[in-house]
Design a protein around this nucleic acid. Structure first.
Lengths: 225, 225
DNA sequence: TCAAAAGTGTTACTCTTACACCCATGT
DNA sequence: ACATGGGTGTAAGAGTAACACTTTTGA
């Protein structure tokens, strides 16, 4: 057969990662992500998700961690597989991209390396490949997951106030939440442990909380591997 | 470097599919899936998910459809990507498996080919590779998805009674549902269109319904590709 | 007429939402 | 003292679950 001249071995595997963080803009927060400017042929000059080829002795998640570290210089606070993209037409050669999504805390993020910049996740330019779709899908997953998991923790330091936590939710969901109801919901979930400390500021001091790591909160699904 | 002797090109891509159908056992239904007996070296003799190598000019979903057709001889009523498994140790050579899961209607399923058999999804033997984990994860997704989507339709013919539909739910969820409450829930969802026909049987005739394909029911997520 | 599934009605209970109101602090 | 965010109370509404009850058929 004619098609036998191109074999299975010609399919290459890449790993890319959608890395989310929270940026403070004025009195509110917004979801941001780092992109890398392409310096090679397909889509040269356009912004793209950080990624690279899968090493032969490297697990998928390890490859995602590696590209993440190369881009942001830090460890992710959360990392999960998003989807495998492998349509024939999505690149000039045949590439199957295993895409991960991750959360990082802005605090411990050093300056972005050369050719890397952070963008507002809700107002991206035209990206290389099908990366606009991929980011949209990752954003949808983030918004969805914040509703039933402790994913917001990935944006917060060890100790935080309920207002801090609520601000994370508001930035992800893109809408304001009622503070009294929010308090009761997270309190009744049993995932927060109150500390003896308060954060003092302009007004009444707010109690600091930390996450209860014992409560696994049915993090949804017998996550494979 | 030493590791440069084995390159990215040595990673091969396979596609496997978890194919669910409903089998009638006595007066109840159970979820079943086809497995293929391995005839080659890694795990020879054990049962495994149907699958094969990704063709160079073949989309991921097309590869899943192909292996599905080779195993069951029919088109799936539903097909969705499950997860990409790619740990270094999961096979003797380096293989990244893109796994799909699918639904087929038992009616139009011909006899299983050589070396293929159908198993009760909740009582599987030891399978090759990490396929037990994979099936567990697919089952979890199926049970989860039945709660918020019209996935049950994938097991039913065009016209069906509310008892038929409820039986699908009960088989997937593994528990009995209250018929009156079930009726109201599906009726209020607006996804069903009553037909003028009834199914006559031993007792009071039951109205036949069909799915309303206009209602997209927020099938959860800007599913990529 | 009787068994059994089809289908309707009703009530209790939980969860969500909206919002009034009090508390404690820095200025 | 007062503005402001921290924190409590409460009541209306939606959604869920349990179950009594009526309807319609074949045997």
């Amino acid at each position: 057969m004619k098609t036998q001249t191109r074999r299975t071995d010609d399919v290459r595997v890449a790993v890319s990662t959608v890395i989310f963080t929270l940026r403070r803009i004025g009195d509110t927060s917004q979801v941001a992500l780092p992109l890398v400017r392409r310096t090679r042929d397909p889509f040269e000059g356009l912004w793209a998700l950080p990624g690279g080829w899968l090493g032969i002795d490297e697990n998928l998640e390890a490859a995602a961690s590696r590209t993440l570290a190369e881009t942001t210089g830090i460890e992710p606070s959360y990392l999960e597989q998003l989807y495998a993209f492998g349509d024939v037409g999505r690149s000039t050669s045949r590439v199957v991209s295993i895409v991960y999504w991750a959360l990082v805390r802005q605090d411990d993020a050093p300056a972005a390396p050369e050719n890397t910049a952070w963008f507002d996740a809700t107002a991206l330019p035209l990206l290389a490949f099908d990366h606009n779709q991929i980011v949209d899908y990752a954003l949808w997953r983030l918004r969805n997951k914040v509703g039933y998991s402790r994913i917001a923790h990935g944006f917060l330091p060890d100790e935080f106030t309920l207002a801090d936590l609520r601000e994370v939710y508001e930035a992800i969901l893109g809408r304001r939440l009622d503070p009294p109801n929010f308090r009761r919901q997270v309190e009744s979930s049993g995932t927060l442990i109150p500390t003896p400390s308060f954060r003092t500021g302009n007004h009444r001091p707010a109690r600091l909380y930390r996450y209860n790591h014992d409560v696994e909160l049915a993090d949804r699904g017998p996550l494979p591997a």
